[in-house]
Write a protein that binds this DNA or RNA. Structure first.
Lengths: 224, 224
DNA sequence: CCAAAAGTGTTAGTCGTACACCCATGT
DNA sequence: ACATGGGTGTACGACTAACACTTTTGG
């Protein structure tokens, strides 16, 4: 490879995040309003250009922090978008990550150096987004559905534990299906991914519910 | 993003392929011997740098053709490698694809403009490879195992059909497990991914075996 | 007619699903 | 004591796994 060859130059890397939360039974995604060009004034996913001395995840976390104030979240790769004209100014490869967080545990900045607004919006009423972000989001939603069924991604939504009714509601909201309480509990326990703690916590009734946590190991399994 | 900022410059994109085949019960991967620097004289996966006016898959297929003579194969994304020093000369993001082909259907060039040798080697006797290709290969093998169980990736190994004993051997070779002939057949048929044809073909015995083909639809399913 | 591999069916055990009652707490 | 949601067990059907004999072809 000849570094001087212009065909190898002028390409950059976008890191892009689809960060989800579930709020009262509604799946929402975090979007920001852009303060600068390209696409000034438009909404977009939280994203930015990678520096040449940065790992992908480090760059993405930097962008997420700069544009939303949110730090220390789990993000995982799910796809790459390579359309040559997906960014107007130059060829930018888009590396897309997804995450899911409890929005109550983070302070979202409404305005930053690079954004004029930020919000959690229901995934079925997302506006037109900059770049190819609507396409990326659609792909992220599909992947999220698959991953909550096949992997223990929800471990990162509940770092300090969860109750059965609580996590069942999450599965039902994201997958848009209802599950039988008794069978749900049996199936999730049967995966071996979680374990009981001695704590209890109230979810929405009066009787306190047992708190469970995800174990460390994380083999791929069909969960639901 | 300020295009003039040097932190956004000097990064390139590698497209990398782990192309597998199964040869007499042995899973093999295609590697090439490098004619030029970096890593002249070393073996590596089939890979190269992406042009700034190319889609990822187009660039990868160009590289595969240039370095092996092989054309028209299915390749699918499986991971991204972003370690800053994974390439010695400059920061190169590595976008990794995997494929599986019937090596008898392709003519492999032993030498090309950019390679001095090329070969299918058993995955348990792969030499030290250039860049981070050993790591990428290990990751590809894991993914291949998962995908033959969860997706219809073997459709691309058998574009014109397969017999039950034949495809069972492939599953057994890659997953290093044996399956009961009767149950294997029932389970694969139950996925709904395949259908019978009117053709028959001899695999290794004297009695001809029915030929099956993969259907068009390709929903993710657990196969084995 | 013998060898080699292809093709098929039944049974037992396991897993998933459907379903109804008691329990702990707050008001 | 009542309302609200949390917690549990059982029975039935579906799927998975184990297993042996018959069929087709070539030599």
């Amino acid at each position: 490879m000849d570094k001087k060859n212009p065909r190898y130059q002028n390409q950059g890397i976008h890191v892009i995040s689809a960060i989800f939360t579930v709020d009262k039974g509604c799946t929402k995604v975090l979007i920001i309003k852009r303060k600068y060009n390209p696409f000034v004034g438009m909404w977009s996913l939280v994203s930015g250009a990678l520096y040449n001395d940065e790992e992908l995840l480090d760059g993405l976390k930097r962008e997420v922090k700069e544009k939303t104030g949110i730090e220390n979240i789990h993000l995982e790769l799910f796809d790459v978008f390579s359309n040559i004209h997906r960014s107007p100014s130059m060829r930018m490869l888009g590396i897309a990550y997804l995450g899911i967080v409890d929005k109550e545990k983070y302070q979202l900045l409404k305005e930053t150096m690079k954004t004029t607004d930020a919000d959690w919006v229901p995934i079925d009423s997302v506006p037109i987004l900059a770049f190819d972000h609507n396409e990326i989001l659609a792909c992220a939603i599909d992947t999220l559905k698959r991953r909550i069924r096949n992997t223990d991604i929800l471990k990162y939504l509940y770092p300090s534990g969860f109750t059965m009714p609580e996590i069942q509601k999450i599965y039902e909201s994201i997958l848009e299906k209802n599950y039988d309480r008794r069978n749900f509990r049996k199936k999730l326990l049967a995966t071996g991914l979680i374990e009981e703690t001695s704590r209890t916590e109230k979810f929405s009734g009066n009787k306190p519910a047992k708190v469970y946590i995800f174990k460390e190991n994380s083999l791929d399994r069909n969960v639901f």
